[in-house]
Computed example of a mutant assay.
Amino acid sequence: MSSSSAGEAAKAVVRRNTEEVQGGGNFDLFDELFADDFLDHTPQPGRTPDKVGAKELYHVLREAFPDFHAVIHWQAADGDLVTTYKTYFGIHKGEIFGVPATGREIHFETVDAMRVVDGKITEHWGVANLYSLLEQIGAWPPAN
């Protein structure tokens, strides 16, 4: 497989995760796409940096935003490392960060990098604009 086709295959794996797992709630596919020894280099607070922690985060997001989905603006592959810039959307219908459902529409941007080896996501690094999300659900600035 050429470097270009390997990069395209890796991008397809990451896209499936974004669209079908995060956006569609297909957690059986999560188990297929993530390696058992997956490592999250930037886990969210309160989450373990492994496959279990990532799956828990996805469940929390889908419970807080049942219609959670992303628009992928672009992806780039450098060998087995895929960088994705996307915006997540949803309606706040469940608790997140201790904030009960507000019914508000939210959106926030994320840039992440995922390493894909043999069709499985093995590593993740990411930055999400959670400040924007907290503002939208009324959690920031903090109440006095």
Results as ranks from 00 to 15, higher is better:
residue 141 P to L: 07
residue 41 H to Q: 11
residue 120 K to F: 05
residue 2 S to V: 02
residue 31 D to W: 03
residue 50 D to V: 10
residue 105 E to M: 07
residue 9 A to G: 10
residue 9 A to Q: 15
residue 56 E to C: 07
residue 118 D to V: 03
residue 131 Y to V: 13
residue 118 D to I: 02
residue 52 V to Q: 12
residue 14 V to L: 11
residue 136 Q to H: 10
residue 11 K to Y: 00
residue 13 V to I: 15
residue 89 F to T: 01
residue 124 H to L: 11
residue 12 A to M: 01
residue 12 A to V: 02
residue 53 G to Q: 02
residue 135 E to V: 09
residue 37 D to G: 07
residue 113 A to I: 14
residue 139 A to W: 06
residue 116 V to P: 15
residue 26 N to H: 03
residue 59 H to L: 15
residue 109 E to W: 12
residue 14 V to P: 12
residue 84 T to I: 07
residue 108 F to E: 07
residue 121 I to P: 07
residue 30 F to T: 04
residue 71 V to C: 10
residue 26 N to P: 00
residue 111 V to C: 14
residue 87 T to H: 09
residue 21 V to W: 03
residue 39 L to Y: 10
residue 73 H to Y: 07
residue 118 D to F: 05
residue 100 P to G: 02
residue 92 H to Y: 10
residue 107 H to M: 06
residue 129 N to I: 03
residue 19 E to S: 05
residue 113 A to W: 00
residue 114 M to Y: 07
residue 128 A to W: 09
residue 96 I to Y: 14
residue 23 G to K: 02
residue 19 E to A: 09
residue 91 I to F: 03
residue 24 G to S: 05
residue 29 L to G: 11
residue 107 H to G: 10
residue 94 G to A: 08
residue 143 A to G: 05
residue 64 A to Q: 04
residue 74 W to N: 06
residue 84 T to H: 11
residue 34 F to A: 06
residue 4 S to M: 12
residue 110 T to N: 14
residue 79 G to K: 02
residue 24 G to A: 05
residue 40 D to Y: 07
residue 128 A to K: 08
residue 128 A to V: 08
residue 78 D to W: 03
residue 36 D to F: 15
residue 52 V to F: 13
residue 25 G to H: 02
residue 138 G to P: 07
residue 18 T to D: 11
residue 134 L to H: 05
residue 126 G to A: 13
residue 137 I to T: 04
residue 14 V to S: 11
residue 25 G to S: 06
residue 124 H to Q: 10
residue 121 I to V: 13
residue 17 N to E: 10
residue 86 K to D: 02
residue 7 G to C: 05
residue 54 A to H: 15
residue 26 N to I: 02
residue 44 Q to K: 14
residue 96 I to E: 12
residue 94 G to M: 00
residue 126 G to K: 03
residue 66 P to Q: 05
residue 3 S to I: 01
residue 137 I to P: 04
residue 111 V to T: 14
residue 32 E to A: 12
residue 41 H to I: 05
residue 22 Q to K: 05
residue 118 D to Q: 09
residue 139 A to C: 09
residue 56 E to L: 13
residue 98 G to W: 01
residue 39 L to K: 12
residue 73 H to D: 15
residue 58 Y to E: 10
residue 78 D to I: 07
residue 70 A to R: 01
residue 34 F to P: 01
residue 16 R to A: 06
residue 11 K to N: 04
residue 89 F to P: 04
residue 20 E to S: 11
residue 111 V to P: 15
residue 38 F to D: 03
residue 71 V to F: 09
residue 86 K to L: 15
residue 101 A to W: 00
residue 59 H to S: 09
residue 43 P to N: 00
residue 104 R to G: 05
residue 20 E to Y: 01
residue 18 T to W: 08
residue 15 R to N: 04
residue 84 T to F: 08
residue 27 F to I: 06
residue 18 T to L: 13
residue 21 V to Y: 04
residue 31 D to T: 03
residue 95 E to W: 01
residue 20 E to A: 10
residue 133 L to V: 02
residue 135 E to I: 08
residue 49 P to D: 12
residue 115 R to H: 08
residue 42 T to Q: 11
residue 13 V to L: 14
residue 67 D to C: 09
residue 79 G to V: 04
residue 3 S to M: 14
residue 67 D to A: 11
residue 120 K to N: 08
residue 139 A to T: 03
residue 51 K to F: 00
residue 52 V to S: 11
residue 126 G to S: 11
residue 51 K to P: 07
residue 64 A to D: 08
